[in-house]
Design a protein around this nucleic acid. Structure first.
Length: 482
DNA sequence: TGAAATGTTGGGGCG
DNA sequence: ACGCCCCAACATTTC
C-alpha cells in the first residue's frame, strides 16, 4: 500500500461501475479522488447554466458519498494539467486514472494532458465508463463509421451490449489532511439569483438520485415504455438523461438492471417494452459514435448541402417567442416552459418544438441547439447534435426534410386530454380537450367560457402552420440535386 | 420517430 | 334488381 493514485473524476460522478476507480483500488493504491474545474477547456461548448446548476449538486453528492466510505473529493481549479501535476506532486502520486470522454475539445485536451503527465514520469490509465462500446470499436465491414442507426445497432449487438458493470469499491483509504482544495460553492456553479429553484422538486442530482430514478422507472413505467414514452402528460420515460450525462449511472448498469428485471418479472409485453428502452440507449451510443467520427457536426451540418440552406434572415422576434414559450401554439409553449422551469423537456416535445423552429420558423438548427445547450440539465453535445440535425434533416439517418410535424395533430395524438398543456400553459387550462391544442380555431363562446381572450391572455400563433409548411417544402425543393 | 393529397374499396341509401 | 352516388375507411403516393 505504498503507491498513491489520483482518480480524476470528470463526468463519471459515481462510485459503482466506475472502472477508473475500480482500477485504482485493484492496483492497491491509496486513492485520492479529484475534480478539476476548467470549463474554458470545453470551448466552444463550455457547459451551460442549467448544466452547471446540476453539476454543483452532483459534486456535493459525490463528495458526500466518498465521505461515507472514509474518503473525500479534492476540488481544484484548472488549467487541468497544472492542477493534476501539482496535486500528484503534493500527494506523492505515481498513477492517474480516469474515464474517457468523447467531445472533440475534451479528446484533444485529454490527449495533451496524458502526454504531458507521461513525460513527467506518471503512469496514466484511462477506461470506458460511458458507453457500451467505444465509438471506434464498431464500424462497417469497410472500416467506415455507420451513418444509419439500424445497422449500427445490429453491429453493436453483435459486438455485445452486456459487459458487466465494474465492481463497486468498499471502504476507501482516507485522503491526507494536507491535500487542500476549494469548496464546491466557490466554483460559482449554482445560479446566484436562484432561478433554478423549480428544478429541485423534479430532480435529485447524484448517484443515489440516479439509482432511485432507475428503480422507480423499473417499477412504474418500463412495462409500458413502448407506448407511454411518447406521452408528455404522464411519466412514461425514465428521466435518467441528466444522470447519464454526468455519469451518475452508466449504460452498463442500465442494461444489467433491465436484464435482471425482465428475468424476475413476467408482465405481458415486458420484454418488448424493455427492449424498446435498451434501443434508446442504443441511440445514445449512436450519437457518441457520430460525434467521435464527425467532430465538426456540433456546428456544421453533416449533409454539406445544408451549408447553403436558405434560412430566414429576418426572423422578426420569432426565436425569442419560441425561447420564452410565447409562440401561441400550445404544445410548443408547454414544452418551452417545461424546459425553462425544470431544465428538461419530454423527448417527443423536443421533436415538436425543434420542427417548428427549423421548418415553420426557418431558424437555423444551431440556434435551437444553443438554447437547449444553455437550458437543459441533460445537455449533452453528442445527443443534442444528433437530435437537432435529425430534426433539421441534415444529419445521419435524418428525418427527410419534408417530414414536418403538425404541432396541433401531435398535441392531439400524444396529449389527448390536454393535461400537459394545462400544466405548463395554465392560461389555457379552462379549455376543453378538443380545443386546447388549437385555441385560435375554438368558437368564441368556448373561449369566453374558458376565460381566454386571444392576444390578451394568450397569443395567436406566431406563424400560419399551413403556409409555413408550404414555404419549407419549397425551400427544400431548392436543395434537391444541389 | 409525419402530414396531406390522392387513390381504392365496399357498404348502404336511393331512384 | 340494378346502377348510381356518397362517403367512410383504408391504402398509396407525394411532398
Amino acid at each position: 500500500m505504498d503507491t498513491v493514485g489520483l482518480v480524476w473524476f470528470r463526468r463519471d460522478l459515481r462510485l459503482a461501475d466506475n472502472p477508473a476507480l475500480a482500477a485504482a483500488v485493484a492496483g492497491g493504491a491509496r486513492v485520492v479522488p479529484v475534480y478539476v474545474h476548467a470549463p474554458e477547456e470545453e470551448a466552444p461548448w463550455r457547459p451551460g447554466a442549467a448544466s452547471d446548476a446540476w453539476l454543483h449538486r452532483s459534486l456535493q453528492a459525490l463528495d458526500a458519498a466518498l465521505r461515507e466510505r472514509g474518503s473525500r473529493l479534492v476540488v481544484r481549479r484548472g488549467p487541468t494539467l497544472d492542477a493534476l501535476r501539482t496535486l500528484a506532486a503534493e500527494a506523492g502520486a505515481t498513477h492517474i486514472y480516469w474515464n474517457r470522454l468523447y467531445e472533440p475539445a475534451l479528446v484533444a485536451r485529454d490527449r495533451g494532458v496524458k502526454a504531458a503527465l507521461r513525460a513527467a514520469g506518471l503512469v496514466t490509465q484511462s477506461a470506458n465508463a460511458a458507453l457500451l462500446n467505444e465509438p471506434w470499436a464498431v464500424t462497417r465491414d469497410d472500416g467506415a463509421p455507420y451513418r444509419v442507426f439500424t445497422p449500427f445497432w445490429k453491429a453493436c449487438q453483435r459486438a455485445g451490449v452486456d459487459a458487466p458493470p465494474a465492481p463497486e469499491p468498499g471502504r476507501l483509504t482516507p485522503v491526507p489532511e494536507s491535500l487542500g482544495g476549494v469548496a464546491v460553492d466557490t466554483l460559482r456553479l449554482a445560479p446566484p439569483i436562484g432561478w433554478d429553484r423549480g428544478f429541485w422538486d423534479a430532480w435529485q442530482p447524484g448517484e443515489a438520485g440516479a439509482s432511485a430514478t432507475l428503480a422507480q422507472f423499473l417499477d412504474d413505467a418500463v412495462a409500458h415504455y413502448g407506448e407511454d414514452r411518447n406521452r408528455p402528460d404522464i411519466t412514461g420515460t425514465s428521466r435518467l438523461s441528466p444522470h447519464l450525462h454526468f455519469g451518475e449511472i452508466g449504460p452498463r448498469q442500465l442494461v444489467a438492471a433491465i436484464r435482471r428485471h425482465t428475468a424476475e418479472h413476467t408482465a405481458a409485453g415486458l420484454l418488448t417494452n424493455a427492449e424498446a428502452f435498451v434501443r434508446e440507449i442504443g441511440w445514445r451510443e449512436f450519437a457518441h459514435h457520430l460525434l467521435w467520427h464527425f467532430p465538426h457536426t456540433p456546428d456544421a451540418p453533416l449533409d454539406e448541402r445544408f451549408a447553403r440552406f436558405p434560412w430566414l434572415d429576418d426572423r422578426g422576434g420569432a426565436l425569442e417567442r419560441w425561447q420564452r414559450g410565447r409562440t401561441g401554439i400550445p404544445i410548443v409553449d408547454a414544452g418551452m416552459r417545461e424546459l425553462w422551469h425544470t431544465g428538461w423537456m419530454h423527448n417527443r416535445v423536443r421533436m415538436i418544438v425543434a420542427s417548428l423552429l427549423t421548418k415553420n420558423l426557418l431558424v437555423p438548427w444551431q440556434e435551437g441547439a444553443r438554447w437547449f445547450w444553455d437550458t437543459l440539465v441533460d445537455a449533452d453535445l453528442a445527443s443534442n447534435t444528433l437530435g437537432w440535425q435529425w430534426t433539421a434533416g441534415c444529419g445521419a439517418d435524418a428525418a427527410p426534410y419534408f417530414r414536418i410535424f403538425n404541432p396541433v395533430l401531435q398535441g392531439q395524438r400524444f396529449d389527448p386530454a390536454g393535461g400537459y398543456v394545462a400544466r405548463w400553459v395554465p392560461e389555457l387550462a379552462g379549455l376543453p380537450a378538443r380545443h386546447v391544442h388549437a385555441p385560435w380555431e375554438a368558437p368564441a363562446s368556448v373561449l369566453a367560457a374558458a376565460g381566454v381572450r386571444l392576444d390578451h391572455d394568450y397569443p395567436t400563433p406566431v406563424v400560419d402552420l399551413q403556409a409555413t409548411r408550404a414555404r419549407a417544402l419549397a425551400r427544400y425543393a431548392s436543395l434537391k440535386g444541389a
